[in-house]
Design a binder for these strands. Structure first.
Lengths: 208, 208
DNA sequence: ACCTGAACACCGTTCAAGT
DNA sequence: ACCTGAACACCGTTCAAGT
C-alpha cells in the first residue's frame, strides 16, 4: 500500500499491460521531487525507481546511468531559469531597470531552488557528456547576453563584444548565488541578502 | 606488497604495538591525496582507510564520520589559500597592484586546486558543523578584508565598512573560480582565462 | 520492446571482541 | 586506548529471464 499507483496512460492504443505508460517522464518527475526534497546529495537511483513504482533496473532502459538522470534534472532547471529571466525581460521596458531586475531574478531563482542550482553547476554533472544540458544552459545565458546587447545599442553600456560584459556579470551573479546558498556570506559577517547584494554589485560593475 | 608500510613513531615511549603512530595525521594525508587524485566525488572512507593501512572501522576513532574527514581536508585548503594570499600581499607594496595580484592569486589557486576548492565550497560540506573550518575560512577572508581596508586608508577605495566592498569582490572571484573549474565559461563561448577575467572584472568593479 | 529478480562489487556505519 | 572482523542496510550497475 506504500507504493503510489501507476497512472494508466490516456492514449487508447495503450493496453493495460504491466508496462508503465511513460516511465521516462515519471522517472524525471520523481527525480525532480527527490532533488528538491533531499538535494542532489540524497539522490539515489533506487529511490527514484521506488517512487516511480518500478524495479531498480528499470531506469536503465531510459537513462544511461545515474548522472544521465541528474543531467535531465539540471536541464529542467535551466529551462525554468530561462523562463524566469525571459519573463522579467519582457515585463520591464526600461533597459537600465531590466538589467537590475534580471540580476535580482537570477539570484532569487538560484537561492529559491538551491538543489536545482546545485544539479546545474555541481561537480557531479559534467555538461560535456550531455549536449541537451549545454543547449538549455546556453538559452538561459542568451537572455543575459540579449539584455546586454540592447543596453549597448541604447548607449547605456559601452560598445564591443557583449561577452566581455557578460563574463564578469554572470560570474558575479553566480558567485553571489553559490555563496548565499552555502551560507558563506553570513559565515564571514556579510548580511545574506543576495538580491540587494546583486543590485548593488551590478551597479558598481556596469554603471559606474 | 601493495600496502604502504607504516612509519613507526619517533617518540621512544611508543612501543612497537599494532597501533598506528599517528593515525589521524595519516588519515588526513591519505584523504588529501585521494581528493586531489579523484576529487571529492571519488572520495570514500574505506579507500582512505586502505591507503592508511587500517581497517574500515579505524577512522571512526578519530573522525565522527565521512563528512568530518572531508571537513579536515577543506580546512587544509583554506590554510593553503590563506598562506598564498598572505604571501602575495607581503610581496606587493603598491596597494593598487596588491588588490589585483591578490585577485589573480585567488582564482589561480582555485583553478589549480579544483578538488580542494570543491571540498571547501561544495554542498557535501556544511561549515556550521565544523567550527575549525569556519575559522580557517575566516582567516583567508580576512586577507581580502585587510587589503581593502588599507586601500581605503590610502584613499584608493571609498571609505566605509570594508565588508561592503569585500562582498561583491569575493562573490566575483568565487564566481569566476567556480565557473572556470566547471568549464562553464568556455561552454558559453567565454575564453577560459580566469586570471585575466579576474583582473579585468575587478578593475571594473572597484576602480571605475 | 520493456521490465523484473537476482546477483556482483562496492559503500558508510556500528559493535562486540581482541591486544 | 586503539584497532579488527564481521555484520547491517544500503548503493550503482549488469544480465539472464519473463511478458
Amino acid at each position: 500500500m506504500a507504493r503510489r499507483e501507476k497512472i494508466p496512460p490516456a492514449s487508447p492504443e495503450q493496453r493495460d499491460t504491466y508496462h508503465h505508460g511513460d516511465l521516462k517522464r515519471a522517472l524525471t518527475e520523481a527525480a525532480l521531487g527527490l532533488v528538491s526534497e533531499k538535494g542532489p546529495k540524497g539522490f539515489t537511483l533506487r529511490e527514484v525507481a521506488r517512487r516511480a513504482g518500478v524495479s531498480a533496473a528499470a531506469p536503465y532502459r531510459h537513462f544511461a546511468d545515474k548522472a544521465d538522470l541528474l543531467a535531465a534534472v539540471a536541464t529542467q532547471g535551466f529551462v525554468q531559469l530561462h523562463e524566469t529571466l525571459n519573463a522579467v525581460a519582457a515585463e520591464t521596458t526600461d533597459l537600465h531597470a531590466r538589467m537590475v531586475n534580471m540580476a535580482r531574478a537570477y539570484v532569487y531563482w538560484a537561492v529559491s531552488h538551491p538543489d536545482y542550482y546545485q544539479a546545474m553547476f555541481g561537480a557531479e554533472t559534467d555538461k560535456s557528456d550531455h549536449p541537451e544540458l549545454l543547449t538549455a544552459g546556453g538559452r538561459a545565458f542568451a537572455d543575459l547576453l540579449d539584455a546586454i546587447a540592447q543596453c549597448q545599442e541604447a548607449g547605456i553600456l559601452p560598445n564591443g563584444d557583449p561577452l566581455e560584459i557578460a563574463g564578469p556579470t554572470w560570474s558575479l551573479l553566480h558567485g553571489i548565488s553559490t555563496l548565499s546558498i552555502g551560507h558563506d556570506l553570513s559565515h564571514v559577517g556579510i548580511r545574506d541578502d543576495p538580491q540587494a547584494l546583486a543590485e548593488r554589485s551590478l551597479k558598481a560593475l556596469l554603471l559606474a
